[in-house]
């Protein structure tokens, strides 16, 4: 049975494309690829170039100056930026570690223990809520929990656990960690859960049948097969924290937790010190690219499509 002949515009175009599949393929892929390359990759690549340029007034002028990098490293005797960088790295690594442990456990519960349950999707959806609601206001809401007479202090005072409200809860590195974790934990849970959900149930059953305790199944089967998801989650959290300027600005306090790397970059852009912003961005990008290349090396990027 032949489909009825039609002379609609789409059909006539389609007849043409049926004979020229390569042209169709190009037309389908090119717009997205050209767009992403133009607005994401070209600007990011240019960062590496103009981080070596100099400013003349408010304009970037081509040259080869390592001045921005030197200032970042503290050439003027001011190691402020380097200290911020160290603090940012420490916070990013801590966040990655904490969210890995917690996120893995949660993903394990949802992906292995709750396997096949009708509650899996709703549960995951609950963890996706922060991702899809206003990031600024969500962060500001932590004030109500952590402040002097906020939720935690009121609760603990009421229970008689403490006598004086704790003042270090808000505007501190603690608050920054609390805020960051509530934002980035879902970024760990999802890729790890996705990788776990790909593990065939029969493999888990086989392990149990052969006498493997849950611990053995976890370490010998679940973790090795989940590694791609784990690394993706780690990249998300680590790079995300390094690029976060909102949480430190709203929740951070004395001791350096209110200014992290992203805040420094933001200030440099605002102050028209573009090479300095570029130098810091280049260093951050290099770390991100290093992690992505590691993923590519171990697992192959094509796998992302399968996830």
């Amino acid at each position: 049975m032949l489909p009825p002949k039609s002379s609609g515009l789409f059909d006539r175009l389609a007849e043409y494309f049926a004979d020229h599949p390569r042209i169709l393929l190009t037309l389908q892929l090119a717009p997205a690829i050209v767009f992403v390359a133009g607005v994401v990759f070209v600007p990011l690549a240019s960062v590496f170039a103009w981080s070596f340029w100099t400013m003349e007034g408010r304009r970037l002028v081509p040259s080869f100056s390592t001045d921005a990098y030197a200032r970042f490293l503290g050439s003027t005797g001011d190691t402020f930026r380097l200290e911020v960088f160290a603090t940012s790295l420490r916070i990013a690594v801590t966040q990655t570690a904490v969210s890995l442990v917690l996120g893995f456990a949660i993903a394990y519960f949802v992906g292995i223990r709750m396997r096949g349950s009708k509650y899996v999707l709703p549960l995951l959806l609950l963890f996706a809520v922060p991702f899809l609601t206003s990031y600024l206001m969500r962060t500001l809401s932590w004030h109500a929990v952590l402040q002097r007479f906020g939720l935690i202090n009121t609760l603990l005072l009421g229970l008689g656990v403490i006598r004086e409200p704790m003042t270090w809860l808000l505007f501190s590195e603690f608050a920054v960690h609390v805020g960051l974790l509530s934002t980035y934990l879902p970024f760990m849970i999802f890729p790890v859960w996705l990788a776990m959900s790909r593990i065939d149930s029969t493999v888990l059953l086989a392990s149990a049948d052969l006498g493997g305790r849950p611990k053995d199944t976890l370490f010998r089967i679940v973790i090795p097969l989940t590694l791609p998801g784990i690394l993706i989650g780690c990249i998300f959290v680590f790079v995300g924290v390094l690029g976060d300027s909102v949480v430190p600005a709203l929740l951070g306090g004395p001791g350096g937790s209110s200014t992290l790397l992203a805040n420094l970059m933001d200030r440099a852009v605002g102050g028209d010190d573009l090479p300095l912003a570029g130098a810091m961005a280049s260093i951050t990008l290099l770390m991100a690219i290093g992690l992505i290349l590691a993923w590519e090396f171990f697992f192959g990027l094509k796998k992302i499509g399968e996830i």
């Binding site: 892929l29 997205a32 690829i33 992403v36 390359a37 607005v39 994401v40 990759f41 600007p43 990011l44 240019s46 960062v47 103009w50 970037l60 990249i235 998300f236 790079v239 995300g240 390094l242 690029g243 300027s245 992203a262 970059m265 933001d266 852009v269 573009l274 912003a277 961005a281 951050t284 990008l285 991100a288 992690l291 992505i292 192959g300 990027l301 094509k302 992302i304 499509g305």
Partner: peptide, 24 residues
Amino acid sequence: TLVIAVMILPIFLPGIIQGFSLSI
């Protein structure tokens, strides 16, 4: 690999750097 890399990699790079590099 090329297509997936181009389409997905932006998720892994900090948004604020993407923002100001494009604006600059």
